[in-house]
Simulated assay, not measured.
Amino acid sequence: MPWQTKTATPHQTPNEPSPAIVVSHVTMQFKRAKDEATSLKELLVRTLRRQHRYEIFLALDDISFTIQPGEVVGIIGTNGSGKSTLLKIISGALIPTWGRVQVDRKKVQLLTLGTGFDPELTGRENVYLNGAIIGYPQKFIDQNYSAIVRFAELEGFMEEKVRNYSSGMVSRLGFAIATIRDTPEILILDEVLSVGDMFFRQKSEARIREMIHGGSTVLLVSHSTSVIENNCTRAIWIEKGHLRASGTPKEVCRAYEKLKEM
């Protein structure tokens, strides 16, 4: 199970600060249906006959690394490689099958976009719903509502149902809600720099740079090697559940790009 401690790590001297995050031999398995039923009738027949077949999917395989306070670490890898699963384990949203994570989760904020949005509610209602899911008190949302709307550039659209929004509008609103608060000590960013048009991306990248360079420890997942190279002090490459490389952003991103070219 995940664990927390303030004791020194094996290679830590008494005068060194404790690591912000220690991921130790983390493995994550999921059970998924094999040969899924193609109709409700087939599903009912299989259920009655207990003919469901499952296979084990290994999302993460023995992942270990340490992040020191103040580091900005980029995580890169192709789709389905386990990056988001790893972030959810670190934030406490998932419990690993094996292995341990050392982190003070009271200091952690996992920033994802659009989690908990209800398309049948208005933009205004979704601000309060999404903010509550993130953990904002209603008073905080009341005080920052206008700033959220301005940053998302959605003045005049907040009484519309979100089902009528474009994907870019939803992303802008999700980003504005998620980044309105003060920067936490440990910030985990899951693909948040690909929102909206070019001009909004520039604005969102500037907002994230403010958060990153405010002294926080940051984990940043991105498909963009330029984002990793421009904003991170170290990079980790995870591919098909395995840790392939850890080092300088330039070295790791070059190795990753070579794989993509093959």
Rank of each mutant, 00 (worst) to 15 (best):
P17G: 03
P17W: 05
S18L: 15
S18C: 15
S18G: 15
P19Q: 11
P19K: 01
P19Y: 06
A20G: 08
A20Y: 00
I21H: 04
I21S: 05
I21A: 02
I21N: 00
I21R: 01
V22Q: 02
V22C: 10
S24I: 00
S24E: 14
S24V: 03
V26T: 09
V26Q: 00
V26P: 01
V26N: 08
T27H: 04
F30G: 04
K31M: 13
K31Y: 10
K31P: 05
K31T: 15
A33C: 09
A33P: 13
A33N: 02
K34I: 07
K34R: 11
K34F: 09
K34Y: 02
D35E: 04
D35K: 04
D35W: 01
D35P: 08
E36N: 06
E36P: 09
E36V: 13
E36S: 11
E36I: 09
A37I: 11
A37S: 14
T38Q: 15
T38A: 12
S39H: 01
S39C: 04
S39V: 06
K41F: 03
K41L: 03
K41Q: 01
K41Y: 05
E42N: 13
E42V: 07
E42D: 15
E42Y: 13
E42I: 12
L43N: 12
L43D: 05
L44I: 11
V45Y: 08
R46C: 06
R46A: 14
R46S: 08
T47H: 10
T47E: 06
L48Y: 11
R49E: 03
R50D: 11
H52M: 14
H52L: 11
H52Y: 14
R53A: 03
R53N: 05
Y54N: 01
Y54M: 03
Y54W: 00
Y54P: 01
E55R: 07
E55K: 12
E55N: 02
E55C: 07
